[in-house]
Nucleic acid binder design. Structure first.
Length: 390
RNA sequence: GGAGGGGUGGCCGAGCGGUCAAUGGCAGCAGACUGUAAAUCUGCCGACGAAAGUCUACGUAAGUUCAAAUCUUACCCCCUCCA
């Protein structure tokens, strides 16, 4: 297995590391950020814009494409790469996160105890999870085998074992049972993956275990003991950032460090620096592209406003007369030709260009951040550049 | 000239005797967003006040009533139809 894949660590110091993941569609220099193109599209952004802004890898979601238009439909169109026009490395998430998100709403809602009214997760049992399709209302069963078959149809380079993303509010007993079931699901995922392996894909195992150190350790050991190509850290990471990094550290303790390690769903700037310090290789998050659509532009520390956020909210009236670019030292197309005042106006005028222009900037921002992190590792300036970006 | 309809907070637009500082929507001002059911969601949005509350408000003026955005009368504007 994994003959066409390779992970090489090219630099290692004090636990943080630089590396290269080789896939049939190209290489990913790590640490890297993976942009979310959930429904076979990074919302509002074309593949050529992704390429122009230095993106090496994107992610799509099995659950969403399974619900619509169907993984077989995409297989018949030549696979996901061809279908969406992205020829670089790609990962598909298994749909495990949707057991969480379609049952509890957003991560923030769940942690803060705000339950959203209607859930489309109908039930979970040993076999898998039953959803009410948000597309046509029909009942859908997603199992480890189905997720793997769908991911095989989609044809991403990197695929992910099917797990249950356990909610933060679950007690330890449920978290443990859920973790053990996830382990059984991951084993089934691996078996189904191996059964159809044709050398074009590599699979990630997922560490679960909630916020409990003993569970995280057990889960990390489980994943490391099984022949996954790489590891992803998933599940709830706690209710605040301090706890989040504690949980990541718990998971890291039992992991096989020779494999690529991905931190699922995390993409704050400071979070990335902290994750890298613990040895994380890749991150993915909807945050950069989602906040862009809500008028939020990521900017380095010196370009921020008084709000202490990692982005500026261009809908704020303070930007109405701001003729400067989002960031004077950014090389993205948006910064080269648009002012904050213009983007503010576009947002107020409800013009779609605003959403795209800010997303292009945020994507370039994240890629520049990762480039800077990689280049600063070997000359030992990681701590200095953190001041610039955090 | 005759007949009818209408004038409500920045705009559109409900309400048609008390529970109305007045439903909604838009605009405005903020906030949230971390393996995307998200170009979404939440809050504020007459003035003063931390709040209780006080004041000023439904074209203008006068009236009926314990009580009027809501009823009556006059006036001023707008729209439609007829001459």
């Amino acid at each position: 297995m994994y003959d066409n894949f390779k992970f090489s660590i090219t630099f290692l110091r004090n636990g943080y590391r630089r590396g290269i993941i080789a896939t049939p569609h190209g290489i990913i220099e790590t640490p890297a950020f993976i942009f979310c193109g959930t429904k076979a599209s990074v919302k509002g952004i074309s593949p050529w814009q992704l390429a122009e802004t230095g993106t090496s890898i994107i992610l799509s979601n099995t659950y969403h494409l399974f619900a619509h238009p169907g993984s077989e439909h995409i297989k018949n169109r030549g696979g996901l790469h061809k279908f969406m026009g992205w020829n670089g490395p790609m990962l598909t998430d298994s749909g495990g996160f949707q057991i969480f998100s379609l049952g509890h709403g957003s991560v923030a809602d769940e942690i803060k105890g705000r339950r959203c009214g209607s859930s489309t997760l109908l039930s979970i049992d040993e076999d898998g999870a039953v959803f009410k399709s948000y597309w046509d209302g029909g009942k859908q069963l997603l199992t480890p085998e189905k997720s793997m078959q769908a991911q095989r149809d989609l044809g991403a380079d990197l695929v992910v074992a099917f797990d249950e993303c356990t909610p933060f509010h679950s007690d330890k007993k449920y978290t443990e049972q859920s973790m053990e079931r996830s382990h059984r699901w991951e084993k089934r995922s691996l078996e189904e993956f191996a059964r159809c392996d044709d050398g074009t894909q590599a699979i990630y195992g997922i560490v679960q275990g909630g916020v409990h150190a003993d569970l995280r350790k057990r889960s990390a050991e489980f994943v490391s003991e099984h022949p996954f190509f790489a590891t992803a850290i998933g599940g709830t990471l706690g209710s605040n950032k301090t706890q989040m990094m504690e949980v990541v550290e718990m998971a890291m303790n039992g992991l096989d460090k020779s494999r690529p390690i991905h931190l699922l769903g995390i993409g704050g700037i400071c979070d990335i620096f902290q994750g890298i310090a613990l040895g994380i290789d890749t991150f993915d998050c909807v945050h950069p592209t989602r906040i862009a659509r809500h008028g939020g532009a990521l900017v380095k520390a010196k370009y921020r406003d008084s709000s202490q956020r990692e982005h500026i909210n261009l809908k704020r009236s303070q930007y109405k007369n701001d003729d400067s670019p989002l960031e004077p030292d950014c090389d993205c197309p948006s910064c080269k030709i648009f002012s904050r005042a213009y983007l503010h106006y576009l947002l107020k005028a409800n013009e779609l260009l605003a959403l795209q222009a800010i997303a292009v900037h945020n994507i370039r921002f994240m890629n520049r951040l990762m480039e800077h992190i990689r280049s600063s590792m070997e000359n030992g300036t990681l701590n200095e550049i953190k001041e610039i970006w955090c």
